[in-house]
Structure formats: structure tokens, C-alpha cells
């Protein structure tokens, strides 16, 4: 099992090492948001008084990374399922669970690198680091990434053979979840129905928790809500994922 996980991980990771620049390109959208949107926000008054706009904005971008990354992970699995390469691996004695864990592990490493890179880019802009907060924030982020990655794998498996379901769900779900989470703009001034919609969205709580953690506010109640949301997503993802792999693709 451990060996097989390493095999799957290194299969997935070698192309990243061969073309490391792709790592940066795949961060394109979040980075664009960071620089363009963030600069815009930092000039506008009335945002979270006393703190720089970056302090408010960067955690949101990190969560965004966390949503778009796993999407691509599910997509790469979908392509392999629709082609013949997944079938080929399924005929080998490779452990079924290891196929999922190895892939998720790769997403985990990529996410971590991308998050650290984003933070490093944000520091010169005025983003203040609270070391313990950053560590806790990253930990939360990574758990979310693993959960979402596993969920997107399950979705890819269920979307066979046409793959249509994958697109429908990701397009219908991802954007509303992103917009309603207050990731890019604060929800505080929106109409009541919008705020309620935002509160139901688990991503909102993760974003809030990340903001509190990156500001070093460990005692904030949002940290608890966010952590619960993340753990639920991760457990659900890994459970559904291993089950789908066991049942055969």
C-alpha cells in the first residue's frame, strides 16, 4: 500500500518536476485576482478598518487556489478514465486505494507550494505574517484541498463515460460557491438573502477562518466553524473516494 502510493505519487509528480513552470501557469487566475483585484481593493476605503486590504484579501485568494486546483485534478483523472491509461493501471496489481491517495498527495504538495508562493508574493505588497497563524492557516487549507481533491475524483469517476456531469457540477457549483463565500468582496453589505446564502456556503466559513488565522486570531469563533467545515469536507471526500475506487471504476 505504501509502496503503491509512492508509485502513483511519483508518476503524477514527475511531469511537474520536468516542467515546473506549469505550476506557476496553473496559478494564473488566482494570481491575476491577487494583483489586479487586490490592488483595486487596497485603494478603496471602508474595508475592515485598521487592517490593510491585503490582510483581508490574501486568505480569500488562498482558498480560491484550493477550489481551482482540485478541479484540475479531477479533470486529469477524467481524461485518464476516458482514455485507456486508467484502465491499464486497473489491470495491474496496484492497490486501488493507493491510486487515489497517491493522486491526492500530489495535489497536496502542489497546493502547499502554490500557497507558499502566493504568500511570498503578497508579503512585499504589505501582507503581514503571523507565523503561527500562517502555519495553522496552511494546515487548514491543505486539509480542504485534500477533501475537495478526493471529491472531484469521485465526481470524475461518476461522470463516465461522457464526462458531462463533471462539467455541469463544477461550473454550476464552483462559481456560485466562490462568489457567495465573500472571497473577493465582503458580503457584509449585501442584501439579507445574499448573506443567508453566504452563511449556508461552507466555503464562507473556511474563508472567514483563514482570515482570522492569518491575522493571528486563534480564538475567533470562525476558526471553529471553518475547521468543522473543512474536516467534514475532507472526511466525506476521502470516504466517498476510497469507496468509489474499491467498487471499481
Amino acid at each position: 500500500m505504501f509502496r503503491d502510493t509512492a508509485t502513483v505519487f511519483s508518476r503524477e509528480f514527475v511531469p511537474v518536476l520536468r516542467e515546473p513552470l506549469n505550476l506557476v501557469f496553473s496559478m494564473g487566475q488566482p494570481l491575476l485576482f491577487l494583483f489586479l483585484f487586490g490592488s483595486l481593493l487596497s485603494g478603496s476605503p471602508g474595508l475592515a478598518a485598521g487592517e490593510s486590504a491585503w490582510q483581508w484579501f490574501v486568505p480569500g485568494i488562498l482558498v480560491m487556489l484550493c477550489l481551482t486546483g482540485p478541479l484540475a485534478a479531477g479533470y486529469s483523472l477524467l481524461v485518464e478514465l476516458m482514455g485507456g491509461s486508467m484502465e491499464r493501471l486497473l489491470v495491474t496489481p496496484l492497490n486501488r486505494t493507493a491510486m487515489l491517495v497517491g493522486r491526492t498527495l500530489k495535489e497536496f504538495v502542489i497546493l502547499l507550494v502554490q500557497a507558499v508562493l502566493t504568500i511570498a508574493l503578497a508579503v512585499p505588497l504589505g501582507f503581514r505574517l503571523y507565523p503561527l497563524g500562517v502555519l495553522a492557516g496552511l494546515a487548514l487549507l491543505v486539509v480542504l484541498g485534500v477533501g475537495l481533491g478526493a471529491l472531484s475524483f469521485v465526481l470524475a469517476i461518476k461522470s463516465q463515460p461522457s464526462g458531462q456531469l463533471f462539467w455541469v457540477v463544477t461550473q454550476m457549483l464552483l462559481f456560485p460557491m466562490m462568489l457567495l463565500s465573500g472571497m473577493l468582496l465582503p458580503m457584509d453589505y449585501g442584501p439579507a438573502w445574499l448573506r443567508i446564502a453566504g452563511d449556508v456556503n461552507p466555503v464562507t466559513h473556511v474563508v472567514e477562518a483563514e482570515r482570522a488565522l492569518f491575522a493571528g486570531r486563534f480564538a475567533d469563533i470562525s476558526v471553529l466553524y471553518g475547521s468543522v467545515a473543512v474536516v467534514v469536507i475532507a472526511v466525506l471526500g476521502l470516504w466517498l473516494g476510497t469507496r468509489a475506487m474499491r467498487r471499481g471504476v
Binding site: 520536468r18 485518464e80 485507456g84 491509461s85 491499464r88 489491470v91 495491474t92 496489481p93
Partner: peptide, 25 residues
Amino acid sequence: YIGQKNSAGENFRVRDELVTQGRSY
């Protein structure tokens, strides 16, 4: 087993896939 569709993943170099395959066995 050699299936109807092509077995090598699109993102991977031929030799890398062969090594992965050997490791899988």
C-alpha cells in the same frame, strides 16, 4: 492486457510510463 484505447497517459513521457508500469507490478 492491451485495451482498445491507448494505454499511455497524455501528460507522461513514454519511458516514465513504462517505469511506472513496472513499479505497478
